[in-house]
Amino acid sequence: MGDDHQQVPGGAQLHRNTLSRPVRTFRVKMVLLGSSGVGKSSLALRFVKDEFRNTSPTVGCAYLTRVVHLNHATLRFEIWDTAGQEKYHSVTPLYYRGAHAALLVYDISKRETFIRAQVWLKELQTHYIPGSTVIWLVGNKGDLEEVRQVSAQEGQNLADEKGLLFTETSALSGEQISELLLDVAHRVYECIGAQQGGLSEWQETPFVHMHHRNTSNPLASCCKVGP
């Protein structure tokens, strides 16, 4: 993970710290949720590398990191790119548990993925503590305008109704990607960073594992998937 200090790609200029006093670095746990094939891994690859490549479906989960510099703080995004395939659903709570940011991704050219995103939202809401997670609805594949099935207005309406934030992106073209990451960073810093103990500080060797922050285990066994 050698790209910790790369700038956010795609034009949006991030403010590197120009102040002389040391800026603190906080850890932000961000999870990507959504149906298989909506482009979660493609978004993640844009976030960390500003690249687009054809990817195969994720098995289990992928973990990537990306550092974002804000004016008064640096955020180290620890991104959990989950697998959308149904067989992995039983392990997904491991990843959204304790997340500061959750991106609910759907594909604007596939209505069922929009419906699926709402199911994810329900599941998230049964687990999360209000105010501890920034939930962002992301309509990806914005470049597929001609086969669009979910209008931007619909996405926006759902977000308004549920109190979420909303963006349409294209991992393919890079449209709105860096803006999204930056917006999430600001949101998380303002809403959660301000709270007492909202974000933990990053040390070079993090032995406080976020996995273990919340030890209550919603699933007794990962063998339980299915009907």
């Binding site: 195969s56 098995v59 289990g60 973990y63 992995y88």
Partner: peptide, 12 residues
């Protein structure tokens, strides 16, 4: 799978 190249994969 090509996806775990960038980050770290974790799978059952």
């Amino acid at each position: 799978s090509s996806s775990s190249r960038e980050g770290e994969g974790w799978t059952p």
